[in-house]
């Protein structure tokens, strides 16, 4: 296991379809170079990818994807400044989606994004205020035998 600490930050631009997923792919690649095991890197990659696509598809001004790596865990933060989520319980329901048709054409908008972020996390929290923005924090533990559900 790598003992290094690292902080990786990626800016995600609203509507930048061509680049969608590139930050998450780069993050996963960096984690593998640091010696993070494939299973944990895959989970972080999935969390990051879903967060990145949410920023690209829904956030008014895009947002920031950040990963903090410590020997104990990898903490992923996804943050934007709006529009915010009206009903978080509804947004967390598998299959619920407000995605536009163009997102569906890309293969996204199945209403699984937030659910999938939570499933792959050992810790998950979401805060959102309409008109102010959304903050999602996910943690993937680095201890062995600490898989998500």
């Amino acid at each position: 296991m790598s003992d290094m600490n690292a902080s990786l930050t990626y800016e995600v631009h609203a509507g930048d379809i061509e680049q969608g997923g590139s930050a998450s792919a780069a993050l996963k690649s960096e984690l593998r170079k640091m010696g993070i095991c494939e299973e944990q890197a895959r989970r972080v990659g999935i969390i990051a990818f879903e967060g990145e696509m949410n920023l690209l598809l829904y956030a008014t001004n895009g947002g920031t994807l950040k990963a903090e790596v410590t020997p104990e865990a990898i903490d992923i933060t996804v943050e934007d400044d709006g529009p915010g989520i009206d009903d978080i319980d509804l947004a967390m329901r598998p299959g619920y989606s407000t995605a536009p048709d163009w997102a569906l054409n890309l293969g996204f908008g199945a209403g699984m994004g937030l659910v999938n972020m939570k499933r792959n996390s050992n810790f998950f929290e979401i805060h959102s205020h309409t008109g102010k923005g959304t903050l999602i924090r996910c943690r993937v533990n680095r201890r062995k035998n600490d898989a998500a559900d």
Binding site: I17, E18, G20, S24, A25, K28, S29, I46, G107
Partner: peptide, 12 residues
């Protein structure tokens, strides 16, 4: 879409 290969990368 461009995302297909990035999903493939993340999921091996």
């Amino acid at each position: 879409s461009p995302q297909v290969i990035r999903v493939a990368e993340i999921l091996n």
